[in-house]
Nucleic acid binder design. Structure first.
Length: 315
DNA sequence: CGTCTTTGACCCGCGC
DNA sequence: GCGCGGGTCAAAGACG
């Protein structure tokens, strides 16, 4: 089982632009957003991964007006070749869960397998006219030896699937908190296996069970209500704070249709609410351009990455 | 013994 | 309608 360690969030050269997605000139808001601009030199962010398109935006997602969404679209300057997916953020966590709960409730009896299967088939009443809704998603890519990045939350793995056109399986995790619907998907980029793509779905409704080791004292992240602790602190705003900031940033203009075959620009993407379960896989449309970044040995917490990089750069 | 992972089966939505 | 692929369930096993 993979555990956190040896993680590096790193960069890809923009396929069509020489500027990094996290170049302070092209993404002036990001560092401010994360509160990192004071602690991390810009050179580090030259090596932050640009985020792949994890999901092809459905036409409806592209056209989503977002007018009823708590998240606001296009409030920040467009990153060149931005490929962030906008989201309708329809906050439908309950529906997903209800879906599953219904399925498991009246499964009774330990009869033979056939009975069991029949029971299962009856468990899921058709919810006609009610599509499965998904919560907003955030995705980011990290350069990591391990798939699972420690992010300060506890996760339970509930599934693993082989991904089409990829030798690497995709793992599905769920926050262990009973009141929290957050899910996490982890997969490895097939064209660059050193890159791990993590997708978060939903928002934590509770603080991180593992507070980071005093980093917040340095003013990193907490003002934005991000959960403490590493990569997920980037990706997963909680409901405990002003979570709109992060998501707003990634509410980029709709997919411009030119991202086919490669990662375009962002290191983090707000994938958004995707109702289709047949979204195109990362591997179908992305090419993880290898970078010259070294892998670092750390414990996988982003807070730990930064100092280690600093040491490397300065040493 | 409780928690977590593994894994096969199932469900669902979508495209053809 | 059918097949495909993503997503999820839940039993069984592993582990501490």
């Amino acid at each position: 089982m993979e555990k956190s360690g040896g993680v590096k969030i790193e960069g890809l050269a923009d396929s069509q632009s020489s500027s990094s997605a996290f170049d302070s000139s092209s993404s002036p808001g990001f560092m401010d957003l994360l509160g990192l601009q004071d602690v991390v030199p810009s050179l580090i962010f030259d090596s932050i991964l640009q985020v792949p398109w994890l999901e092809a935006p459905s036409p409806s997602a592209i056209k989503a007006p977002h007018d009823s969404s708590p998240e606001v679209l296009n409030q920040l300057p467009t990153t060149p070749n931005s490929s962030s997916v906008s989201s309708d953020s329809n906050e439908a966590g309950a529906s997903v869960n209800d879906d599953h709960r219904q399925r498991s409730t009246d499964k009774s009896g330990e009869g033979d397998q056939e009975e069991e299967r029949n029971a299962k088939k009856q468990l899921k009443p058709k919810k006609t006219g009610q599509k499965r809704q998904r919560q907003p998603r955030f995705a980011f890519m990290t350069k990591s030896e391990v798939d699972f990045l420690e992010d300060g939350y506890r996760w339970r793995k509930y599934g693993q699937k082989a991904v089409k056109n990829s030798p690497f399986p995709r793992s599905y995790y769920r926050c262990t908190s009973s009141t929290c619907n957050v899910k996490k998907r982890v997969e490895r980029c097939f064209s660059d296996p050193s890159n791990v793509v993590t997708t978060y779905e939903g928002q934590h409704t509770h603080p991180s069970p593992m507070m980071p080791r005093g980093r917040n004292a340095a003013g990193v992240l907490p003002d934005y209500g991000f959960s403490a602790g590493g990569a997920a602190a980037f990706a997963m705003p909680t409901q405990l704070g002003t979570n709109a900031l992060f998501s707003d940033y990634f509410q980029q203009p709709p997919y411009n249709g030119s991202m086919n075959g490669c990662f375009q620009s962002l290191s983090f993407s707000h994938v958004g609410s995707i109702s289709s379960s047949k979204s195109t896989s990362l591997e179908d449309k992305s090419s993880c351009t290898p970078t010259n970044a070294d892998s670092l040995s750390d414990n996988g917490l982003l807070q730990d990455i930064v100092p280690s990089i600093l040491r490397k750069q300065q040493g």
